[in-house]
Design a protein around this nucleic acid. Structure first.
Lengths: 236, 236
DNA sequence: AGCTTTCGCTACGAGTCGTAGCGTAATGGC
DNA sequence: GCCATTACGCTACGACTCGTAGCGAAAGCT
């Protein structure tokens, strides 16, 4: 899937989506970094520098005043280089924000309720950072009119972090806190519902209500969610 | 609070927020529309025309390509007139979107669960409209860096629609489905939590997961929410 | 060597932003 | 009926960003 997609940098037909740089970390690089293709290889460090510069600019300027020329300057690359790797502001910010959520871990706190609280608190902490707030909501807004962008968000962020729900449920099943699932389709729907409820509530609390998703709130939220899912009171 | 704030249209110091047009419907007009102030009164119809044109432009162009000059042309007013009433794109879109949510009603469907389902379905229907999607998320994104804008969103949309939660709970208490609240502070926190969960989940389902919040999903969601809140199974 | 691709740089047309300045229209007060 | 006051439409403007084109040079491979 790699070679060919970016064979003609001056072809001028980059409708949307990323211009697939060599050896980008999100997927796996198909072969050795200096493998096959002739010509000067891309500066791999520039990718990280651009994404870091994007986050920094998001913090200082926010989405609307973020200028790609400025990002390029911060990253120490030419503006044209940035456009050779990303097709525009939207795609760039999605990648810059997606990296933030890879920090999420599922801690083993002994019980399902405590595990959920731990993850939700981490999620809230990331969302409290200014680069996540302004960037994430802005690209979600844009994605309502751009199917490719929405798909990029889904795969890079949402589906990617659903691992947490799956791992949490599996661990709870081992503990005997949840019954093993029977219908796999019903099970998938439940995972989706949980993810929408958790991510949605935290986002709304943090960004719209503009109140901190602190421990007290997370405990209340987890209690309602868990009680709604299991139908029986859990010790917190 | 009215007179004086906009006494000098060419003063050039409109930092943020709306320029308080005469007789705007969201608040109450303090006195008679042609009361006191001398001079030519504002064209009241222009306000509605501008907001309608904004929504139409949101549908056709989306947030990022929405140009205020274009909106003015659609509304049949000069661009300067638009800037005399709103300080920028953000404030304009908040007002344009806020009107959409005033359509929400709390239907009497006989049970708390059914009432919630009815409201959530209405909410989902509004959020499915393109002008709501792109506009709402964009201003929320911008509000992360603009306290005045966030406050405008909170009062014009969020607090305004909390009436639904309050009315639904009151009705359920009359029916005996919910106990009367004791601690008013605890009660307020619960209302906030419910609103964050409902609005957040529907928004996430609709915009991020990009799946329809249809009857089946709403039923599942309502069941979890209500079970989590009451701790006992309700007949659906 | 020669080929190929990337990089930095400059320059450019197109488009939007938000405001200034003007003449004119529509009120109410005297 | 005249005047002060405010709103309106229009044109024009500088400042800025966007995204691309074109060039020469650098950096890898065979």
């Amino acid at each position: 899937m790699a070679a060919g997609a970016y064979a003609t940098p001056f072809s001028g037909d980059l409708p949307h989506g990323r211009t697939e740089p060599a050896g980008y970390g999100r997927g796996m690089h198909s072969h050795t970094p200096s493998g096959g293709r002739p010509g000067r290889p891309r500066n791999a460090a520039a990718d990280a520098a651009i994404l870091a510069a994007t986050r920094q600019a998001l913090v200082e300027l926010g989405w609307s005043k973020l200028a790609l020329g400025d990002v390029a300057t911060r990253a120490g690359v030419a503006k044209t280089t940035l456009y050779r790797r990303w097709s525009g502001k939207n795609e760039l910010v999605v990648d810059a924000v997606a990296e933030l959520f890879d920090e999420l871990r599922l801690p083993d706190r002994g019980s399902l309720a405590a595990d959920i609280e731990g993850v939700v608190l981490q999620f809230a902490a990331i969302l409290a950072r200014p680069e996540a707030k302004s960037g994430l909501m802005a690209v979600v807004a844009e994605s309502t009119r751009d199917d490719a962008l929405r798909e990029r968000i889904r795969t890079s962020i949402v589906e990617r972090q659903k691992r947490l729900v799956l791992a949490g449920r599996a661990r709870a099943q081992v503990r005997g806190e949840l019954p093993p699932e029977t219908d796999p389709e019903e099970s998938a729907r439940t995972v989706d519902l949980i993810f929408d409820m958790v991510a949605g509530a935290v986002v709304h609390r943090t960004l719209v209500s503009a109140e901190p998703a602190d421990e007290e709130w997370v405990r209340s939220f987890t209690r309602v969610l868990l009680l709604g899912l299991t139908g029986s009171q859990q010790p917190v």
